[in-house]
């Protein structure tokens, strides 16, 4: 959940405690997101330099990786996890696949925007969200619909 930004010692203390509580739950295999984080690390390792695909791809930037990390950390506990990849334009891609007619991909660019495309039966949905530290609620709803 997004938080109103604080400044002082009390705000920092509360943020630290909240993060500790979240990471304790994230460490559980039932509620955690480690498989997706492992894939993100693999993307960082394999795609951090230009031409990582042998066809002139752009390097994935620390900003895109960081935003992908924050996005994954903000998913609700026990939420369906995506497979993580990279695109030749340097974006990080998160993909939820349910069947050939139900899938959603979110492309995270280096400027803090989320571009999504969903296939829901015969409907095609796409658009862009500004990324503010947490996964937008509309995207969470789409992911739920795709994953049933």
């Amino acid at each position: 959940m997004p938080t109103t930004l604080g400044f002082g010692a009390a705000a920092r203390s509360i943020e630290l405690k909240t993060n500790q509580q979240r990471s304790a739950l994230r460490q559980s295999t039932a509620l955690g997101n480690q498989p997706a984080l492992d894939e993100l690390i693999a993307v960082a390792q394999e795609c951090h330099e230009p031409n990582w695909d042998g066809y002139g791809a752009r390097a994935v930037t620390p900003r895109a990786l960081s935003d992908a990390f924050r996005f994954l950390q903000s998913l609700p506990y026990g939420f369906p996890l995506p497979s993580v990849g990279a695109e030749p334009d340097g974006h990080v891609t998160l993909e939820w696949y349910s069947s050939v007619r139900r899938s959603l991909s979110v492309s995270i660019d280096p400027d803090g925007y989320l571009h999504f495309a969903a296939l829901m039966g015969t409907n095609h949905l796409y658009g862009t969200f500004t990324f503010f530290e947490t996964a937008p609620r509309e995207l969470l709803r789409l992911i739920r619909e795709v994953c049933g």
Partner: peptide, 24 residues
């Protein structure tokens, strides 16, 4: 802003990758 930067080197004994942090 803290940015998590994953180190790209994999050690021979396949230890978990190191993470660095960048500030922007």
């Amino acid at each position: 802003q803290l940015q998590v930067d994953f180190a790209a080197e994999i050690s021979e004994d396949e230890k978990p990758p190191l993470t660095r942090h960048q500030h922007q």
